[in-house]
Design a protein around this nucleic acid. Structure first.
Lengths: 107, 107
DNA sequence: CGATGAATTAACTTACTGGTTATCTAATGC
DNA sequence: GCATTAGATAACCAGTAAGTTAATTCATCG
């Protein structure tokens, strides 16, 4: 389930920080790991989670591995949020309209 | 951490379904539980997670408890997604511009 | 008041997550 | 070929999450 993976990937602050970092440009695993004081294997697994969610991709260049964001990845989550937010502000509008149309039809 | 709560709340398909249902209008806990074949306590706890994420609120009406979505709740997550998506398509644009400006400055 | 019905809380189980250290793989440089 | 360096995998541990059934709260109805 793609949305599951996306949302749960983004639920972790370390992973969001990694995404934020990558939004500013590509980076190697080591560069990504540097700001955090957790072990490299931990970072490696975070990256794997992000990969499984299709949020990043990586390519081997020499002995480094260069990571980048995948532009299309966030759209699924964004669309979901957008759809439901609009839908229900829509309902609120309808409610407001209803209250306006039938002012004191209490009970 | 608000974004944590929001994203992890939305990471669960049952909770997303509940949000989707509520986007179409208020409902009692029992009504929300009906479509699922999990126990009521399980639903109750899902609702609590959604509450903690400020995605829903509820009010007691008689012996029922009526739930509704909170319009402002999704915006935090949405803003985060929007910001980073734009930022990094921005970087891609800059990359494209760079490639265009200096066509074959290879290595 | 006592019974019923809606929902939460408690206690428990199982599975997953995020971290660790230690080991392994693969590419570079001498 | 061997040492070094970047990174991934393995094995393990502690905390959290999601589900269950049983017990509890709270409001209505008779």
């Amino acid at each position: 389930m793609q949305l599951n993976d996306t949302f749960s990937a983004l639920a972790d602050p370390t992973r969001r920080a990694i995404v934020a970092r990558l939004a500013r440009g590509e980076a190697t695993v080591g560069e990504l790991a540097a700001p955090f004081d957790i072990s490299l294997p931990a970072i490696s697994r975070h990256l794997k989670v992000l990969e499984r969610a299709a949020l990043i991709s990586n390519v081997r260049v020499g002995k480094h591995r260069r990571c980048r964001l995948r532009p299309e990845a966030l759209t699924g989550a964004q669309d979901w949020l957008e759809f439901h937010r609009r839908f229900w502000t829509g309902s609120l509008d309808r409610l407001a309209a209803h209250l306006k149309t039938s002012p004191r039809t209490k009970k």
